[in-house]
Write a protein that binds this DNA or RNA. Structure first.
Lengths: 143, 143
DNA sequence: AAAATTAATTTGTATATACAAATATTAATT
DNA sequence: AATTAATATTTGTATATACAAATTAATTTT
């Protein structure tokens, strides 16, 4: 209501961050069954599917900065959920027995997350929203 | 593209966070003219408009946790951009001469931010997106 | 009126992310 | 071949945000 609220909700900075916090909270819960924050779980899943990919590729796929990915990988390696191999100036990331072992659980948690927000937003709306949000993120990234 | 990317972009957690990072970067730049990160600038604007509001109200308006707002206010007070007054168990937030002085600049920066993303996303699409994102954030918050 | 509950805010602590600078490696020019 | 430039990754450092626990104050119940 009131003027202020109108003002806020008309700003994409504000709205996008609010949505990100909300869905992150949901994702945190969904992935808590594997004791991983969502970004970590996503890395594990990706590496399980594409063992041997470059750190930089991972950063690109996830739209994160390389330095951020380094930080995430450090912690995953400590937990034995990825293995890093330095090859010249590249770093290649490999799955591990442990990461493969929990893969099913992660994929399941991911699906649960999807179900959860679909239940709140409606499937059609949620899918459309995700697509629009994604394409916008891509466009902003290219600036 | 490929399988992995498809997978990622179909997840609202991933997309929403990517968008939030992108627009935050843009907002950082827009508000750099007043040397404030966007959230701080928003607080200043809000308090300028509604001097004397409660800390908790601010948290609600901004969809942030009270503890987060406390932290932001601490730093703004150091810069003399808000004044806090403890009244019983409430904390009321007031504008300051300095905050009023830069208000125009902040509002201008905000408008510049809007122009910038509208240029990339298109005005109609941007507005629709913002609205959808906002209403979804509200729905997720209520869970 | 005293005790117990509820409410508002603040601290202590943790974390994901980014930027800028540093490092190391490969490629391109001279 | 030697220097320069470009590329990939990692460190040092900073920050916004949140959670859980602590504090303080107001309300309700006994």
């Amino acid at each position: 209501m009131t003027d202020k609220k109108t003002t806020y909700c008309k700003c994409l900075y504000y709205s996008a961050n609010a949505l990100a916090r909300g869905i992150t909270k949901m994702a945190d819960e969904a992935f808590s069954v594997v004791n991983l924050a969502p970004s970590y779980a996503f890395i594990v899943m990706t590496v399980n599917k594409q063992s041997g990919l470059q750190a930089g590729e991972l950063a690109q796929i996830m739209m994160l900065k390389p330095s951020t990915v380094t930080r995430l990988l450090e912690k995953l390696e400590i937990q034995d959920l990825v293995k890093r191999q330095t090859l010249g100036r590249l770093t290649l990331i490999y799955s591990t027995p442990k990461s493969l072992e929990i893969n099913k659980k992660i994929e399941n948690a991911w699906y649960v997350l999807y179900q959860n927000y679909v239940e709140i937003l409606g499937e059609k709306f949620a899918n459309q929203l995700t697509e629009n949000v994604y394409s916008s993120a891509l466009k902003l990234e290219k600036v």
